[in-house]
Write a protein that binds this DNA or RNA. Sequence first.
DNA 1: CGATATGATTTGCT
DNA 2: AGCAAATCATATCG
Length: 318
Amino acid sequence: MRLDNMLLAEGVSGPEKGGGSAAAAAAAAAAGGGGSDNSAEHSDYRAKLSQIQIERMVSIIHRKFSSIQMQLKQSTCEAVMILRSRFLDARRKRRNFNKQATEILNEYFYSHLSNPYPSEEAKEELAKKCSITVSQVSNWFGNKRIRYKKNIGKFQEEANMYAARTAANATSVSTHGSQANSPSTPNSAGSAGSFNMNSGDLFMSVQSLNGDSYQGAQVGANVQSQVDTLRHVISQTGGYSESLAASQIYSPQGINRVYSEGIRHSRSRLDFTTGFVAGHLRLCMRMSANGGWQDAPTPSSVTSPTEGPGSVHSDTSN
DNA sequence: CGATATGATTTGCT
DNA sequence: AGCAAATCATATCG
């Protein structure tokens, strides 16, 4: 403190840091007070002054050094962050979910096929059950919805499997309740029949797998969701036409590019899918008035799991 | 080893 | 903010 004051008084040091002015005034007053000019004292004084100057230089260098060190740390941290985001990207070390988690998610998806949008609570519940994060659940449902919609035929077998499983569970729990699963399905029997006729061996095989009444009802519910999906596709396509495959791709009316691509990518499934679509267009148009998935967000009918809250616990991945 | 499946991210929309 | 769609990057399969 006194050194600082002296330095300031001698003009060796400027008021670099804050609060310099008051100290400088005080130092100036002090220096003006004592004015003895002995020669021996003077040389001693100068020696000490030069030493102080050296010390000051050292401290300046020290400060410079530490500031450079700081900058270096900062830039290194930035570089590390960039490297992390680039090379330790989560995508690069993707791990498939374990079978149980996938089954839980699929179970939910196919049992809520008419409205596969789990609420925040449902997502948390699923996340807890699957030991994944909520955002992973959201990712999974996003991917599932889009991929299911893009190629319904491909997921038909899976859909029926989970539908049958759900039916079996319902059966084991309560000996009845077959119709409770599809409350808003008007003509389940007829639609299921024609759906099976057109959709080919996948359905037949599943039916032969277990052909009891519960399974029939489940297929009806499944058809309902298929119809919901189809209604969405039709609304996106913006038209109702017989030769759907051709008109979708070449229609002048600004057809959604996505769906054209989806059909194009279907390849071998294309015949099946388009046949399915064309064969059920009439049915779809006559089907229930409440929409499917996102064009009519009505969470009224089958939805609302509304499970318990559970602990909000996350980040178990990897 | 190419094709496909799949989880994650990005982009654009509402 | 939540979603659809496209895309990326890795995993898995035949």
